[in-house]
Nucleic acid binder design. Structure first.
Lengths: 223, 223
DNA sequence: GCATTCTGACATGAAACATTGTCAAATCCA
DNA sequence: TGGATTTGACAATGTTTCATGTCAGAATGC
């Protein structure tokens, strides 16, 4: 359902314009992904046509189906590419930050919101991802889980199991809640026209993480 | 763009089957909204056809266009109806709860998650709402804002402006974050097959509200 | 009872798109 | 250079669905 390796074309696979077949294919595929960011980001998934994407990529429809089975497959790839880049950059920022939960969290959040400041990326990652298909919904769930796990890694000590169980809830639900607060602040930021500064949204998201930390420490201390 | 009052039909508007014209129209409209919950909830917005909705409602296509300009208009009405019911019931629960922030918050959250326990409602309100059109996106933003304001009303004292400004953020962003954490816990609950109990998700959401409250009080006290 | 209106089943037209196919020009390699 | 392949532009086909139209029969008020 995702990508295609070979299909209608190329019985021989010789060079063309100084590039091998696989190089040409990879380049076209990359162009389609970048065009997908533009078209999906500007018109949404529903408003995007294969023709418009190919036009943006400077390719014709035939090459679309060389790399992707349909526009949903391209969308899934676009989404995974964007999220993968963000995750990678976030992990780098965490590694380079002082080894302390607050600094690491702030570094990660700053990277996240810097990406969400790009309207096309924000629209794809925050809005368009929903309601396309159950398959894509599963991709979203998996992605969110990964970020929740990242959150749990970062702040593992905040979610002392005994404390958590005493409150009658689970660390997974709490970290999903924190991830959701971050996502939603970004969503509001985008839908409301980016009126707030980057610092403001980073601090708001961070305040919730900090509050959760403080709350946990307090609860543990008073027991 | 939303609903229609009169159109192709009825130059006279006499009774039929013991009901006036407006009564019949209202009944058909209601049937369409209820059918919309089923069809949109089971197949999503993209997977829903006017024909399927009419079939579910026990009506023919003509009566669809009597009440709605297109399926997007029906979806908007379905969404507003569902959210309006939830909001109404939440406010009732808050009014009947002990006049104390934690009890009121818990009462409201319990109502919210009780509704989100219905898969069709959850899918429409949490998933399908996104990416249909910019108009619907605005509806979502307005709805979320209303819930953020409700949160702010409930916990006004938690968001002492001086405290908040000292943290370099705004109460609106914080309340949006809290609303987002609640929404996202519900989304996870739904996408993950409702594995957790109602109490567990209510407590997880409540923990974040409580944490924010504790954090604010602490910060204010230490200044 | 009867002309009129309402209803439901189905037909029809129109538009948008995805996907495949055609073909001439560009490019390669031998 | 010449045969083969790759590319790009565009046509063609088929499907889907919306939105409206048609029409016979049911129900109404007078």
């Amino acid at each position: 359902m995702n990508d295609r390796s070979s299909d209608t074309a190329a019985p021989s696979g010789r060079d063309y314009a100084g590039r091998t077949l696989s190089e040409r294919r990879a380049q076209r595929r990359k162009a389609l992904i970048e065009a997908g960011v533009v078209i999906f980001g500007d018109h949404g998934f529903r408003g995007a046509t294969v023709k418009a994407i190919c036009r943006q990529a400077g390719l014709t429809e035939r090459y679309f189906y060389e790399s992707f089975a349909n526009s949903e497959a391209l969308f899934a790839t676009v989404y995974k590419t964007l999220v993968g880049d963000i995750e990678h950059e976030m992990r780098d920022a965490v590694d380079q930050a002082p080894a302390e939960a607050e600094s690491m969290s702030e570094a990660a959040l700053r990277v996240y919101f810097a990406h969400m400041a790009r309207p096309r990326v924000a629209r794809i990652v925050l809005i368009e991802i929903f309601g396309i298909s159950t398959r894509i919904d599963r991709t979203y769930r998996a992605t969110t889980l990964k970020f929740a796990e990242l959150t749990e890694d970062l702040t593992a000590r905040l979610f002392d199991p005994s404390v958590v169980n005493a409150q009658g809830t689970t660390p997974r639900l709490l970290s999903m809640g924190l991830v959701g607060s971050t996502i939603h602040i970004a969503m509001y930021w985008n839908l409301n026209g980016y009126r707030e500064s980057l610092d403001a949204v980073v601090n708001a998201a961070l305040a919730l993480y900090r509050a959760m930390a403080v709350s946990m420490v307090d609860t543990a201390g008073h027991d």
